[in-house]
Write a protein that binds this DNA or RNA. Structure first.
Length: 310
DNA sequence: GCTTTACGAAGATATAGGGC
DNA sequence: GCCCTATATCTTCGTAAAGC
């Protein structure tokens, strides 16, 4: 499998002078990518400017940042043409890698605006190199700028930042530094949410698991779904007994604890999230915890009103 | 029984730090 | 300037205790 390390530059409405188009708040104007083989060695590159059709003025802040002017874009390809070329360049067997979680989301939003066939009909697995950098070298939670990571790894800064191709190239260099085992911490893009039960997402990490449900009309219906409220042991996949039934200390998050005779106390947490069209979906995470942590959650539950028990 | 005060929880708002 | 996410802080509200 190849790695497609992708970076985009985009422009936005020049507030006050140009109305914002709601369906495309950010218009992609520069696509850069580097293809790495399975050993993370560079085997090809892609670099293309896009001729904009939505925002004809460069936003001041953006213009200063990315060092691109409207006249540079006049010779660019139309978005649809550039994407067709780019996607066939990507090939068949690959995973997208980006710095931060936004690029893949904006790419799909732009494709949708131009009524292109979607990249996928379900959530997309990708590598967020910004997150991987934090896991490999920092505290797993912080998010650093690309330049910080380049300085940290003492990689030579031979081209300016904030152009799609150069940032993709820098990101690829960082990716090739990161130890193989860290790459298991992949991310899920939810521009497209699971549409059916079959498309729902189950992700196993070494110390926790994550589940992303399909959409439901509201919170109550989500919390009635068997799969949503199921608390099977994610290691041995057996049904296990609930020690603490689902409860919500605040109406947004739900907690439960089950006990697996082999793996111990498993805490599950449900977050209810809003999707675009006023529906909701569920992100459930499960992990094994100590008896002491179990006691703390029990205390939290005792403070919760009965009406919030499920 | 009414008013004041204190406190904690929940919700709303602000901030920070990343992206362009 | 706007988007996204996570976290911190402020505000509001309900309840309980204290004072009269």
């Amino acid at each position: 499998m190849n790695y497609i390390v992708l970076d985009l530059e985009w422009n936005q409405s020049n507030t006050g002078n140009e109305p914002e188009v709601k369906e495309i708040p950010f218009e992609i104007i520069d696509i850069g990518a580097v293809k790495l083989n399975g050993q993370r060695v560079m085997i090809d590159t892609y670099n293309q400017l896009i001729k904009p059709t939505v925002y004809k003025q460069m936003h001041m802040i953006t213009g200063n940042l990315i060092q691109l002017h409207m006249k540079d874009l006049e010779t660019g390809d139309p978005f649809i043409k550039a994407m067709d070329t780019f996607l066939s360049w990507c090939g068949e067997d690959y995973i997208f890698c980006t710095w931060g979680p936004l690029d893949l989301y904006e790419l799909q939003r732009n494709m949708h605006y131009y009524e292109m066939e979607p990249l996928s009909h379900k959530p997309i697995k990708f590598l967020d190199v910004q997150k991987l950098f934090s896991i490999a070298y920092e505290d797993k939670k912080s998010r650093r700028s690309l330049e910080y990571a380049i300085d940290y790894l003492k990689i030579e800064k031979d081209v300016p930042f904030h152009r799609a191709y150069s940032d993709a190239h820098y990101t690829a260099e960082i990716l090739s530094f990161i130890e193989e085992s860290v790459l298991e911490n992949y991310s899920i893009d939810t521009y497209i949410l699971p549409k059916t039960k079959k498309d729902e997402v189950y992700v196993m990490f070494h110390d926790y698991m994550k589940y992303i449900s399909r959409e439901f009309p509201d919170k109550l219906q989500a919390m009635e779904d068997k799969e949503v409220i199921s608390t099977k042991c994610y290691l041995c996949r057996r049904n296990i007994r609930k020690k603490i039934r689902w409860f919500s200390p605040n109406g947004k998050h739900y907690y439960s604890i089950s006990f697996c005779p082999v793996h111990g106390y498993m805490k599950s947490k449900i977050r209810i999230r809003r999707s675009g069209n006023d529906k909701v979906y569920v992100v459930k995470t499960s992990k094994f915890i100590s008896k002491e942590d179990c006691r703390k959650i029990l205390q939290k539950k005792d403070k919760t009103k009965d009406s919030d028990l499920v």
